[in-house]
Design a protein around this nucleic acid. Structure first.
Length: 284
DNA sequence: CACTTGACCTGTCCGC
DNA sequence: TGCGGACAGGTCAAGT
């Protein structure tokens, strides 16, 4: 899915459109994607929109909503005055014909100021209605610290990854209990930034190499946020526009293309059933 | 406990 | 052109 930078971009978009606005109606076309009753949402105002790793959280007057977009989920908002337009939010996005709703618009939430479409081709994503902060805690409690938290210190990071000394560093970066929010794209980009091959076992890394990886995680996330995330295929911002990080990606999606630093063709291999991209010359 | 595999879905791409 | 298989940004549960 959307990884942390994509979800944060969506959060900012939703915040601008929805905070202070009221849910008028919830249309559920694919029931299994909504946990809880649509009735618990109607007539409630959104007070705040936050994010925990890749999960979006709406604080309502009475409870919370948690949303995970997984691989292909989208949240597209069409303001009231734009609803007659052919293109999503005024952007000429031809994905699924460019019109809303379409066959993958599984949950449609009408607000007092427009309509929010939850689209998800693969139906892995979900929306959960949570009665209180206890239920919310159960939903996000297992996640580790985020890249910009004080708890995410070098000492913490080093000891956390060393518990998995035998595993390739690529796989460990994807572990949401160690650092929450890193996915396949930014794990590859982080390892290029640190000049470490994804296959290296955690146990083989020197303290200085671990420190470089530790510092690269925020660098990569901040750059990705600047570009509004990565639209490999399905990811869209709230207004329907794409993220443009691929323009500056160092390795993700660049297999066969020359390394931006040294010109060596970027390789793509499998690590733990996930594709990994790296430069065999720059990364040791 | 750590690690791997399969499952959840559907579309697209590649090779034959 | 058609068809089958592999693969796609995420995460769990279950098995080893």
């Amino acid at each position: 899915m959307p990884e942390l930078p994509e979800v944060e971009t969506i959060r900012r978009g939703l915040e601008k459109e929805l905070v202070g606005h009221k849910i008028l109606n919830v249309q559920v076309r694919v029931p299994k994607l909504l946990f809880g009753s649509p009735k618990d949402l109607t007539d409630q105002k959104i007070l705040e929109i936050t994010r925990r790793a890749k999960i979006l959280i709406w604080r309502l007057e009475n409870g919370f909503v948690a949303i995970h977009l997984k691989m292909t989920g989208q949240l597209i908002f069409v303001p009231k005055n734009a609803q007659e337009k052919t293109f999503i939010g005024g952007h000429p996005d031809k994905l699924y014909g460019g019109k809303l709703p379409h066959q993958y618009s599984h949950i449609i939430i009408t607000f007092d100021n427009g309509i929010l479409y939850f689209n998800d081709l693969r139906k892995f994503g979900w929306i959960k209605v949570l009665a209180n902060s206890e239920d919310l805690k159960k939903e996000v409690g297992h996640l580790g610290p985020e890249y910009d938290w004080p708890e995410f210190s070098f000492d913490y990071f080093q000891s956390a990854i060393l518990r998995r000394a035998k595993s390739p560093i690529k796989q460990v970066l994807l572990d949401q209990t160690i650092v929450a929010g890193v996915g396949n794209i930014y794990a590859d980009e982080t390892l290029f930034c640190a000049k470490i091959q994804p296959t290296r076992s955690v146990g083989s890394l020197t303290e200085s190499e671990i420190n470089t990886i530790y510092k690269c995680i925020p660098k990569v996330f901040q750059l990705a946020l600047k570009y509004g995330g990565t639209s490999s295929r399905d990811y869209r911002q709230v207004d329907g526009s794409q993220g443009t990080y691929l323009k500056v990606a160092k390795v993700y999606g660049r297999q066969g293309l020359p390394c931006r630093v040294c010109g060596t063709p970027i390789l793509r291999i499998k690590i733990g059933a996930r594709s990994s991209h790296y430069c065999p010359t720059c990364q040791k």
